[in-house]
Simulated scan of single mutants.
Amino acid sequence: MTLHTHARPRDLDASLLRSWPLPMPSFDADKEERGHVLILGGSREMPGAVILAAVAALRAGAGKLTVATGNSVAQLVALAIPESRVLGLAENEAGGFTVEAVAALDPLADRINAILIGPGMQDEAATARLVHALLPRLQGTETSIILDADAMGAILHPPSGANPPFRFGVPVLVTPHAGEMAHLTGIPKERIADGDDRLALEMALRWNAVVTLKGARTVIATPQGERWQHEGGNAGLGTSGSGDVLAGIIAGLAARGAELAQAAGWGVVLHARAGDRLAARLGRLGYLARELADEVPALLEQAAGDAADAASRPSGSFAGGKG
């Protein structure tokens, strides 16, 4: 589906989602048809982040999962996610990965449909070097690339001899919240929300990236000038690990064949709806990020049902309801 530029961001509501259905596997599809996602992240201090993202990618429907993480935590991650293949990568003293990791990941480059880099990674400069070492190999494939957390530092730390900000040769997806956007742009955090539409679009054009600027109101902008917005969820989503889950959902949808903006839009809505379901059962504060992913399959099933009988179902039943 091609969406054209509008004077204001389009609302990610039930009507739009019904007109923008996710790629669906055939009835007899195997795991290959549902896509292979690679999650690159984790560290000695934050192994949980890559686990949260990886589980969320599977809950979003990806068929195959590979996790690449530090040698120090690889066994822990493998035990936590028995559905995954886990690769252990060499680490530096600061907890980042060395560029030798590229050699370990190279055989996967032609076999993955989406890669998420960043959850739980440490040492922004080392992470940026790794991203820039991987990009030439990945951008020669049809792999969707999602950069989260420290991996977005590739914008501030371009390859040697280049001046920041880095502009991607092929569009990637980045997922900053206001604090991360302030870090990437030098704009004070308190000013981000005042101009998030303009800022998201400006950075999408400058970086050649799909920008998902997260917050109570999330804005998605593309280098082609397309914009979407979503207001929803609840305060409970502002909890440790929530962003890792969102990034994993987006990566899982991209592995299934959703274009980057579509994966981001659907991911934001599913993440918010999952928070609403948990809030209805447990209360708005205190539910855990790891509980969000468990809500996603039922929400996807509900969305598929809504699309199937859209002619008879009242508008707003998925994105507007409380589930």
Score class of each variant (00 low, 15 high):
S144I: 05
A235K: 14
G88D: 07
P25Q: 09
M203A: 04
L270Q: 04
A279K: 07
E142V: 04
G305K: 12
L130W: 06
L3H: 12
V245E: 04
L147C: 03
K214D: 11
A78Q: 08
R281W: 05
W207Q: 00
A94W: 12
A68G: 11
A209T: 00
L201P: 08
K31C: 08
R111G: 08
V55R: 15
L12R: 11
I81P: 00
A254C: 14
R34T: 04
V99Q: 05
R256W: 01
G179Y: 10
G88V: 02
S84Q: 12
E142S: 15
D28Y: 14
A109P: 03
R59N: 08
L116R: 02
L87Y: 09
L288Q: 15
I155M: 00
L58E: 06
G186Q: 12
G61I: 01
L138E: 06
S240A: 15
L58Y: 04
A258D: 08
A53G: 04
A319I: 05
E142H: 14
W228V: 02
A209H: 00
S144C: 13
M46F: 15
A255S: 11
P107C: 08
L108Y: 07
A216T: 03
L89I: 06
V219D: 07
V172N: 02
K322P: 00
E180T: 07
I220T: 14
G320C: 05
I39E: 05
P47T: 15
N71D: 14
G241A: 08
N163K: 13
L79P: 12
E226M: 10
A154I: 04
L38D: 00
D196I: 10
A94D: 06
P21Y: 09
L300R: 05
A193H: 13
I155L: 15
A68H: 10
A308Y: 03
A274H: 09
L40R: 10
L288I: 09
D294A: 15
